[in-house]
Amino acid sequence: MFEARLVQSSILKKVLEAIKDLLNEATFDCSDSGIQLQAMDNSHVSLVSMNLRSDGFDKYRCDRNISMGMNLGSMTKILKCAANEDVVTMKAQDNADTVTFVFESPNQEKVSDYEMKLMNLDQEHLGIPETEYACVVRLPAGEFARICRDLSQFGESVVISCTKEGVKFSSAGDIGSANIKLAQTSNVDKEELAVTVEMQEPVTLTFASRYLNSFTKATSLSNVVQLSMSPDVPLVVEYRIGEIGHIRYYLAPKIED
């Protein structure tokens, strides 16, 4: 028996919002430590890795590890039936072929349950090597979303260049070119407004803007986004999910041929 209860259904709604552009389906791997998801987009250029820890749920029970193949379009439709303030419970019998979502209104006057068929998805897990990144940038998630959106109007690639002064985002195309430079903030009163750069060595990498824009669908989950870069390895874009977990997006760089 698997059962996970979350008081804030909005977290699950935002998680689906954050992954449904990139992925059509994904396997939710549930164990007693929590729910994990790892899936590449169809082009195998980007990967989503999500983790929701069991101690972040109000109630969590997982008698035996269970992998639930979810159609994310269907799951999105079901989660749209939950009000933001509803309590959501996901539950499934061991080796079940369906999962049930129960939404309870705060005053318990309305209880809805939705049963969704599960899919048999082949599990292709990638080994992601632990990496000491040359540059780790933290900036306001809204700022990053704005930069990606603005620059994607100029070209289909964004060059991210990180030095100890700060980070520069550039794009060029038919209409011209654009550069956005963010300096490290010195003393900001609020942590989530800071731009910080931890640099071991300067890095400049090129990425496809459309993937960066897909990643920013996770902006509603966190005030801060973290970008980790090293020469010739995928970019990592990480959003924390409250106190319960994180979503990490990996993006393969564009390389001069």
Binding site: V45, E124, L126, P129, A252, K254, E256
Partner: peptide
């Protein structure tokens, strides 16, 4: 024009 690489270049299948 830069060529888009694939993740399989960096991550191996488990």
């Amino acid at each position: 024009e830069d060529m888009q690489s694939k993740l399989s270049r960096f991550f191996s299948k488990n």
